[in-house]
Simulated assay, not measured.
Amino acid sequence: MDANDETCDQQLPLPPKPVLPDIAAARSRGPADVVEAHWQSLRLSWQWSQAVHQIRSPGRPYPGIVPLLEAAAAQPRLRRLYPFTSHFALLFSSSTSYPWTVQAGSIEPLHNGRFRVRRHRPFAVIGEVATAEEAVDLVLELLPTGPEPIITTSADRHV
């Protein structure tokens, strides 16, 4: 074994996993608390994933999901909706459980640091922008006008 093998076997310690909000307890308090707890949970989980990525793959870019979540959470109209991610894309639902009732569109952080915004219905790419804030602005334009959507839980819907 040479000196290079030893340094490869030594790994930096990973950050401790975050303590996530209790989603079950939030569900017992109602949809608004579920939405808030899930925003916190997503932010903490993705921040941890990014920190782990930086330790395990230093120098390799990580998609901009963390700044995207921060930019979206700063917007009151989006903050009222249930956020969820799929393949790094951020989406917003007026339902707090599956099947999702997607509002507006989705934002996908790209590996080149840009963000792609897609409309949900009809499905189409509506733009690619340089910052998370610009992407959030495009999604805000896609939200329905008029009254805000009513947030529902699976118990509120008749399936």
Rank of each mutant, 00 (worst) to 15 (best):
D2R: 09
D5C: 04
T7S: 05
K17N: 09
K17M: 12
R27M: 08
S28D: 15
A32I: 07
A32Q: 12
D33C: 10
V34A: 00
E36L: 15
W39P: 03
S45R: 05
Q47R: 15
W48D: 05
S49T: 15
Q50V: 05
V52L: 01
V52S: 02
H53C: 05
I55Q: 09
R56L: 04
S57C: 13
R60Q: 15
G64W: 14
I65Q: 12
L69C: 12
A74N: 05
L78P: 04
R79Q: 02
R79P: 00
R80M: 01
Y82F: 06
P83V: 14
S94H: 02
S94P: 01
S95C: 02
Y98C: 03
W100C: 00
I107D: 06
I107G: 10
P109F: 02
H111M: 11
H111A: 14
R114M: 12
R118N: 15
R118E: 15
R121H: 14
F123I: 12
A124K: 15
A124L: 15
V129A: 06
V129P: 04
A132V: 11
A132S: 13
V139N: 08
L140K: 03
P147M: 04
P147N: 11
E148M: 00
P149G: 11
P149K: 03
I150S: 08
I151H: 05
I151G: 04
I151M: 02
S154H: 06
H158E: 09
